[in-house]
Each structure stands twice: as C-alpha cells, then as structure tokens.
Amino acid sequence: MTKIKICGLSREADICAVNEYLPDYIGFVFAKSKRQLSINQAKPLKKLLNPKIQAVGVFVNEPIESLISFEKEQVIDMVQLHGDEDEEYIRILKTKIKLPIIKAIRVKDKLDIKQAFAADFVLFDKYVKDVYGGAGESFDWRMIEDVRIPYFLAGGIHLDNIQEALKRAPYAIDISSGVETDGVKDREKIFKIMGIIKEHNNKNQ
C-alpha cells in the first residue's frame, strides 16, 4: 500500500482540499522556500487539519532547540530533515524529541542511495546544486530499483509520471508542485493524484 504526502500546504483552502481527499501526510515547509511558513502561520492550519492526516514539518539545518519547540507546540507530527544534517545530529535529535524523523537524501548518483541514517525513514529527492529541495525535478529512478528499506520518493512527480513512480514500490509518494497550478495547490490535481494512488493500491492488495 503506497502512501501519499502532499507537501507545501500554506493556505486554508489547501487544508480544506486535503481534508476532503485524506492523504496520509501533508507537509508544512519551515525552511526558506516560496512555500515557507512560520510556526504561527502553521498553528491555525494544523488545528483545521483532519487528525487522520499526519503533518510533517520540513526543515533545513534547523537548530535542535527549535525542533523541540515545534513538538511542544504540537504543530507537527513528524520531522523531515532536508539539509546537511548528519548522523550525529539525528542521534542527538532522537534523544530530544519523540516525533518520527524522515531524512531527505539528495540523489546525484548510486553512492547517495547507499547512505545510512538513524532516521525512521529516508526520502529520495534529486540533487540540485545550491538547492535543498522543492526544485520540482526527478532523478533517474532506476538507481533505486534495489532499495529494500521503506522510503519516500520525491522530486518532480506529477500526473504524467505518477504511474512510473508507483512501479518503484515506494513506502510513500511525496508531491508538491505536481499538484499545483501557477504555484498554488490545485484541488482537482490533488483529487486526480489521490484517485490514481487509491486505484493502484486496490489492485495490489
């Protein structure tokens, strides 16, 4: 059963759309980005979010003390590290918070795929120089054919290539710009993507 994460939600209308279609996860981006939110902007959105949906906070090189605050404020249910956080950072973070941790790996070649982290999940995204994420580009998915651990697949996934992404059997598909029109989340695209994934899961039960 492939799960789905709709990332980069920033408006009340986005929350209304996901509450209707119920993806497994949504993402609030707290790192520098056109989709960036502050903790105070995210609080009311989290309160509106259906509790069946887990909110993932996306961070880049965030101080650990800051992440402790996010947990205390109950703004997020999971942490996604999308920067240069190393194994030591993750091990320390695990002693400070109880939230599950996703570590993003920006893939340039097969050596990147083989990196191991103490995180609960890894997320594969395309390496783009000087960009930590959200570039909306996919990498060569043939490089992850032999991966046997649960992983999130991100980067340039949209309606035209979602079927190919699903063939890789990821734990979860992570989509942001692929369900947007003119930089804004598109309810119809979310509906279509969710339908494709549900149909795929029904066929593979």
Rank of each mutant, 00 (worst) to 15 (best):
residue 1 M to G: 12
residue 2 T to V: 15
residue 3 K to I: 10
residue 4 I to N: 01
residue 4 I to C: 13
residue 4 I to R: 01
residue 5 K to V: 05
residue 5 K to E: 05
residue 5 K to F: 06
residue 5 K to G: 02
residue 7 C to Y: 03
residue 9 L to H: 06
residue 13 A to V: 12
residue 15 I to P: 00
residue 15 I to Q: 02
residue 17 A to C: 11
residue 19 N to F: 13
residue 20 E to L: 11
residue 21 Y to Q: 09
residue 21 Y to W: 15
residue 22 L to M: 14
residue 24 D to K: 01
residue 26 I to M: 03
residue 27 G to R: 01
residue 27 G to K: 02
residue 28 F to A: 10
residue 29 V to E: 01
residue 30 F to M: 08
residue 30 F to W: 04
residue 33 S to F: 00
residue 35 R to C: 02
residue 35 R to F: 03
residue 37 L to A: 03
residue 38 S to M: 00
residue 40 N to R: 06
residue 42 A to F: 11
residue 42 A to Y: 09
residue 45 L to T: 01
residue 47 K to L: 15
residue 48 L to M: 14
residue 48 L to S: 09
residue 48 L to H: 02
residue 49 L to Y: 10
residue 49 L to N: 14
residue 50 N to R: 15
residue 53 I to A: 05
residue 54 Q to P: 08
residue 55 A to K: 06
residue 57 G to A: 02
residue 57 G to P: 08
residue 58 V to F: 08
residue 64 I to W: 10
residue 64 I to F: 10
residue 65 E to K: 13
residue 66 S to H: 08
residue 67 L to I: 15
residue 67 L to H: 11
residue 67 L to R: 10
residue 68 I to A: 11
residue 74 Q to M: 06
residue 75 V to H: 00
residue 76 I to H: 06
residue 77 D to I: 04
residue 79 V to N: 01
residue 82 H to W: 02
residue 83 G to M: 07
residue 83 G to C: 10
residue 84 D to G: 06
residue 86 D to R: 04
residue 89 Y to M: 04
residue 92 I to T: 10
residue 94 K to A: 00
residue 95 T to R: 09
residue 95 T to G: 03
residue 97 I to W: 00
residue 97 I to S: 08
residue 99 L to F: 05
residue 99 L to T: 07
residue 99 L to A: 13
residue 100 P to H: 03
residue 100 P to Y: 12
residue 104 A to H: 00
residue 105 I to V: 15
residue 106 R to C: 03
residue 106 R to W: 01
residue 108 K to R: 13
residue 110 K to T: 04
residue 111 L to M: 04
residue 114 K to V: 14
residue 115 Q to N: 15
residue 117 F to K: 04
residue 118 A to G: 15
residue 119 A to N: 04
residue 123 L to N: 15
residue 125 D to I: 01
residue 126 K to H: 12
residue 127 Y to M: 05
residue 127 Y to L: 10
residue 130 D to W: 04
residue 132 Y to G: 00
residue 133 G to E: 03
residue 135 A to W: 14
residue 135 A to E: 06
residue 137 E to A: 12
residue 140 D to N: 14
residue 141 W to A: 09
residue 141 W to N: 07
residue 142 R to C: 02
residue 145 E to S: 13
residue 147 V to E: 14
residue 148 R to T: 15
residue 152 F to K: 14
residue 152 F to P: 09
residue 156 G to D: 11
residue 156 G to T: 08
residue 156 G to E: 10
residue 158 H to I: 00
residue 158 H to R: 15
residue 159 L to F: 10
residue 159 L to V: 02
residue 160 D to F: 01
residue 160 D to E: 11
residue 162 I to N: 00
residue 162 I to G: 00
residue 164 E to H: 11
residue 164 E to Y: 07
residue 165 A to S: 12
residue 165 A to E: 02
residue 167 K to V: 00
residue 167 K to D: 14
residue 168 R to P: 05
residue 173 I to T: 02
residue 175 I to T: 10
residue 175 I to N: 06
residue 175 I to S: 11
residue 176 S to I: 03
residue 177 S to Q: 12
residue 177 S to C: 11
residue 177 S to G: 12
residue 187 R to M: 09
residue 188 E to R: 13
residue 189 K to N: 05
residue 191 F to W: 13
residue 191 F to Q: 10
residue 193 I to D: 09
residue 196 I to W: 06
residue 199 E to N: 15
residue 202 N to G: 13
residue 204 N to M: 08
